[in-house]
Amino acid sequence: MTTQNSVSSPTDANKARRRLNFGFDRFSGLYVFALLVIVFALWIPNLFLSVNTARSTLAQEAITAIIALGLLIPIAAGVFDLSVAGSVSVGAAVALWFQTNGFPWPLGVIGALVVGVLIGALNGVVIVNLKVDSFIATLGMSSILVAMSYWATDGKQVVAGIQPGFIAFGQFKVLTFPLSFFYMLILAAILYFILEYRPAGRRLYAVGGNPIATRLAGVRTGRVIRGSLISSAVIASFAGTLLAAQLGNATPDMGAPYLLPAFSAVFLGATQIRPGRVNVLGTLVAILLLATGVKGLQLLGAPTYIPYLFNGLALIVAVALAVRPTRKTKG
């Protein structure tokens, strides 16, 4: 009783602080993005303000964005999926394995998707049925997937036997933008619709918010978690086929560099648009923001370590700022 009283009366100092906080509210990422564009545009106008820059940034980041959007689904349900990078590698390897063995390339893409379903289902069994912590389960799975990608590619870069249709699938451009950019937009639209306008989205967030309460509200939480893991794995292996098609080759463990950026984007995104909740638009804003910063710094000729530094600092600073107001209200 006494504690309730002390919580419910915000002091004047608190109010003042909240007023100052509005700048770092739900659209802070967009403000910072605008600021970055202006700074780089004034600094290096010739290099930064070109169509080529925009195009190459979008092409590079589309794959990361697709993986991050897939990853967002299990994170919304409160489970980690560290195996997305592994799914990317295996997706790429499987798509090329079909082609080098003489099957038509669309079969390779379908094969990669099927393998994605299997990976996600297996993750689900380990996490839901065997009750292994998702962090550990998917950590183990990601190592298994790296092994699989080495086996499927024979440990070498696969370049031979790739069909022209497959290359076109990855490199075809519409209105000068690569196809993967449009895949990303379509995926984002579908996911946004499901999370915001379908009961499944409500259940997903509910499981992430309070799994016990969700189960006692008559929701089959195990099924929600399994579904989320299958989604992330399928989307990641699709991203793997896109990556292979874009590059025209597959190397073992080629998904690895995407893991941390994807996680960063999801968590940074949780501070945007709908603060406190991982969400589609926030994730896209986060990717845009990080990509712009990194691109600008690269064009400035910053040393190679600077982009990594920028990514890391941006994530930590943004999340630290975002948790401040909630701490206040808890008092």
Binding site: R202, N210, T214, A217, G276
Partner: peptide
């Protein structure tokens, strides 16, 4: 039972 940070709508319609 409760989803503390979620809206009343989300709490009721879960």
């Amino acid at each position: 039972a409760g989803f503390a940070a979620f809206t009343l709508t989300e709490n009721i319609t879960v």
